[in-house]
Structure formats: structure tokens, C-alpha cells
């Protein structure tokens, strides 16, 4: 009997070790032909459209050219990425601007190193937009007293919605927000649990396909609104300034490449998301400028103070490069 039981435990361990062997390593940069060995760098990202340029840059060998071997770690959101970057588990991370402003206001030692993505500037064709189903809601100010879905409370999406309502002359403080993940928003609006949803691609295309009316977008806050940034820890910034500079350069180049090759950016989406190739053709891609739009970040910081996310406007020079 002892033998039988120990055989079972041995089998369990064997299965575990076999599984350990079978997990293959993450695909990385193209075969190295340069003289020096590439610096291995891990970047914490979210598996959404916004980060297509970094994947494209890796696959096009742009990072390799700058001596960087990239590994992308898909995290579930900024809440997991920021601590991992600060602890050095990731060298760089991707996060939305408001999350970074909030982190900076709590003296989290981080520094932005490259632009992430921006609004397209078109209020009717942006990658993030506000949708309603009820035909009686005609403009954003009608959302006063209504329930609006946001992916995170006190972050970039509800700040954007408040700014859209205020711009239309409504009292933004009287909009009620419900926290819902982007994938759950359309079903909630369908069922009438909320009155409006703010979704990003690919859910924006799905909302449009439903025939729901769009009454706002990121572009309403600022036509060049900077939505997200790539950042690092201040520790890495001081310890390896050369590596950080090479990352920034490679990122700028990747952003420019993605901006000028939208078809390749769309094709890249199928490599790290499960969006079907056909569906990527109709998605609205964000804008990927190489430089950080400081004016719009300043505006967001101001809105964050107005809506009580921050007590005072942070010194942006400590966050931005």
C-alpha cells in the first residue's frame, strides 16, 4: 500500500516536471547578428490595441537594432504593472496617464520614458467612445443623474466622461459611475443595467455594430489627448541611463513605424490578441505620435484635481522626461 501511494505521489511529481519541460520560452527578437549581446528587457503590457507598436517594433527588429531583446509580459492592468516595474521584475511598463499621475502623487518612484498612444482627434472616429442606447439621451448633459459604466473608478475613463458632460454644460458631479470591465459593458447596456458605457476597441466597433449612438470620445477632452505612456523606475533610470535611452529611441521608431504602417499594425494585433484578422480591418486604431503631448497631460492633471482624484496638481517635470 505504501508503494501504491508513493507511486501516486511520484506520478504527480512526474507530471509536474514533464509540464515544466514542455513550456517553451517566449518568442523573442530575430536572430542576433550584431556584435554585442542584446540587453534582455521585460516590458509589462496589457493585451490591447494600444501596445501594437512595441510588438511591431520587436518583430521588425527595431529593438534588436538598439541592442534590446524584448520580452512582453501581459498583465491584467496598471495595478499589476506599476509594482512590478518598481520592484524591478519588469524593466519597463505600459500604463494610462491618470494611473501614472496618481502613482506619482503617492511618490511612487517612476518616470515616463516614451509615448504610448493618443486620441485620433476625431470625435466621431476615436478608439475610445461614450455610447448610449436610450434614444432620449441626446447629448452628454442628459447623463446627469444617470448610470455610466467605467472600467475603473477614479481613473482616466470616468474623468473623460465627466469632462465630456461638463463640456456639454452638464453637472459632472451628478453622473453616477458603475465599475464594469470593458467586456461586460455591452451586455450591461443591453440589459438596461446602465444608461451609458465608455468602451475602447475592439468593444467600440461592437457597440457601433449594435447601432448604439456615440455621444462622446477621448477627442472631446483634447484632440491630441495622450492616453497612455511607457515608464520605468527611477532606479533603472539612474543605474542604466544608456539602456533607458536606447529603449526610448527604439520606442519612438516603433511608434513612427506603426503610425505609417497601419496595415502591419492591424496584422500585428492577431499575434498577441485573439481578435480575428477580418475584424481588425474595421477597428479604429489610436494615434501613435513619437513625442509625448505635454499639453494634454497637463489638461488631464487639471481635470484630475477638479474631479478630486488628486488634491493638488503634480509637478509634471518629475513624471515626464
Amino acid at each position: 500500500m505504501i508503494r501504491k501511494t508513493s507511486a501516486f505521489i511520484a506520478t504527480t511529481l512526474l507530471v509536474a516536471s514533464m509540464a515544466a519541460c514542455s513550456s517553451s520560452s517566449t518568442p523573442n527578437a530575430p536572430s542576433s547578428s550584431g556584435p554585442a549581446v542584446d540587453d534582455k528587457v521585460t516590458v509589462g503590457v496589457i493585451a490591447i490595441l494600444d501596445v501594437a507598436p512595441i510588438y511591431l517594433g520587436r518583430d521588425k527588429g527595431i529593438f534588436h537594432k538598439h541592442g534590446i531583446e524584448l520580452t512582453m509580459q501581459q498583465a491584467q492592468g496598471g495595478a499589476a504593472i506599476v509594482p512590478a516595474v518598481v520592484s524591478g521584475q519588469y524593466q519597463f511598463g505600459f500604463s494610462n496617464v491618470v494611473s501614472l499621475l496618481l502613482a506619482k502623487s503617492q511618490n511612487v518612484p517612476i518616470k515616463a520614458v516614451a509615448n504610448g498612444n493618443n486620441s485620433t482627434g476625431s470625435t466621431s472616429a476615436d478608439f475610445g467612445g461614450l455610447f448610449v442606447k436610450d434614444p432620449n439621451i441626446k447629448s452628454p448633459k442628459d447623463l446627469v443623474g444617470k448610470k455610466v459604466a467605467t472600467n475603473t473608478l477614479k481613473n482616466i475613463v470616468d474623468t473623460t466622461v465627466k469632462a465630456i458632460v461638463a463640456k456639454d454644460g452638464g453637472d459632472a458631479s451628478k453622473v453616477n459611475f458603475v465599475e464594469l470591465a470593458f467586456p461586460n459593458m455591452a451586455p450591461a447596456l443591453d440589459a438596461g443595467n446602465v444608461d451609458a458605457i465608455f468602451v475602447v476597441e475592439p468593444f467600440l466597433s461592437a457597440a457601433k455594430a449594435k447601432g448604439w449612438k456615440q455621444i462622446g470620445s477621448y477627442a472631446d477632452v483634447d484632440p491630441n489627448l495622450c492616453v497612455a505612456l511607457y515608464f520605468t523606475s527611477t532606479q533603472l533610470m539612474t543605474q542604466k541611463p544608456d539602456l533607458v535611452k536606447r529603449f526610448t529611441d527604439a520606442m519612438k521608431e516603433s511608434l513612427a513605424y506603426a503610425q505609417t504602417h497601419p496595415d502591419e499594425a492591424r496584422a500585428e494585433l492577431t499575434t498577441y490578441t485573439t481578435i480575428k484578422a477580418d475584424d481588425t480591418k474595421n477597428l479604429i486604431l489610436p494615434k501613435w505620435p513619437g513625442d509625448i503631448d505635454k499639453t494634454s497631460i497637463d489638461k488631464l492633471a487639471g481635470l484630475a484635481v477638479t474631479y478630486g482624484l488628486l488634491t493638488s496638481k503634480p509637478d509634471l517635470t518629475t513624471l515626464l522626461p
Partner: peptide
Amino acid sequence: ELVIGSPGLGHDIETANSSNS
């Protein structure tokens, strides 16, 4: 895997979910 994002089927569920698949 779903919540932390460590690799595995749970993470794939989350990725498929955020891709509207």
C-alpha cells in the same frame, strides 16, 4: 492566471475576453 495574469489558460481566457472573442 485570470487575476494576476501569470501564463496559462486563465490568462488566455482574459486575453480572449478583452479581444471580445
